[in-house]
Design a binder for these strands. Sequence first.
DNA 1: TTTATAATATGATAATTGTCATGTTTTATT
DNA 2: AATAAAACATGACAATTATCATATTATAAA
Lengths: 225, 225
Amino acid sequence: MGKCEQCIIKQFNSLKSLTKDELVRISNCKTSHIIKKGTVIFEEGDAVNGVYCVKDGICKLSKLSENGKDQIVKMVVKGQLLGQRSLVSDENSNLQATALNDMEVCFIPKSEIMADLQKNPKFSFDVLKDMAHDLKEADDIIVNMAQKSVRQRLAEALIYIHDSFGVNPDGTLSVLLSREDFANIVGTATESAIRVLSQFKKEGLISTIGKQIKIESLEGLKRIE
Amino acid sequence: MGKCEQCIIKQFNSLKSLTKDELVRISNCKTSHIIKKGTVIFEEGDAVNGVYCVKDGICKLSKLSENGKDQIVKMVVKGQLLGQRSLVSDENSNLQATALNDMEVCFIPKSEIMADLQKNPKFSFDVLKDMAHDLKEADDIIVNMAQKSVRQRLAEALIYIHDSFGVNPDGTLSVLLSREDFANIVGTATESAIRVLSQFKKEGLISTIGKQIKIESLEGLKRIE
DNA sequence: TTTATAATATGATAATTGTCATGTTTTATT
DNA sequence: AATAAAACATGACAATTATCATATTATAAA
């Protein structure tokens, strides 16, 4: 099994602030997992007792609303940590995590990493920075949800996915989402999301190959008011 | 000037985790301020170089949207810290803080408290907990914005303000907000907020005395679907 | 391959919400 | 107290978005 000390992934998240000794200890207690597309990693209400270090793949964090829809709040990709908040609060998760494609993760039990959070100020400061960033992002999402149209929100979602997660060799977005997922990111009905995507296609802003989406005019999408 | 060590307010926020020595030092560099209703404490883009400990009064944290509206993201009341995120990130503020009534605050320069954040793990863990809580709250707001009607959101805002900030002796909400503020919390047009409040009044769920609002049926508001 | 099932697509219509106009009341100012 | 300004309120209408119906494709299963 891979060792945390040598893992390239750790460079991209807070684990980089751990000392070599701490990494060795964690390496010995971590467990590697392959998670299949569609698998629910944890549900709302679950006690998540550890963090997942995402070595490959993508998952969505969502929250079920009373009307039966599953609002996507955040996406976690390769290199990031999943379930950080479980380290800090003893409360159960308020979100559900679902794999969007096949994933490879390392699970680090809370019990092992908690001591580091308490003793290594560099590590805890790093986690703090991460959370501050998430919070800033959440503020932006709130404002967008409250003040922008479905058309604008969907355009921004496409831009966000493009810029943050990149594209395949053929130019299509590397994160493959269903139309329903798009609707759940934007917070609208699936039909509305589909309609707006069709509209974007007609306007030449995007093109589609099956469910794959290719952005044809980033500038055009940015101009949408 | 009051001393931090003896300040009752500190019990309600992360400062309680500081040692007596740390509090004495902070006490010597903090500055007390009276902030008048309507004053902008800091703006979007400002470098906030410290935290405000709110001893009295309430302020709103908002973010200007392109359509000219000012979405309220959070409210900070007596006992809480304002500007915590400035400690963690070097970026400028993404939010504007505005006093909703006359406030009394202590300003603690970032330079003085940063060392404590780095050295006192209990303190940093407390800040971490606070942020995790804010993040959880932000998730809920996102879901509400995305999935609920203006009517539902306004009902929930009233319940939230009632439960979190309490009522005056006559039963009216102790936080006095304009109709525009309500609209900016809920993320709707001022006219829409006014209309829904009028509707609630007709239905006997609330009553009003001038711009003061009194909740007549908390149960009724909770039942709104 | 055939068949079943799910995902995508689009039209028709209803419900919600925003915008503009306008009037009333409250609050602040002279 | 008189006046101006702001906040509140409501109607009329337009724009946006949701819902339901119904095709049409993709995808998975037999």
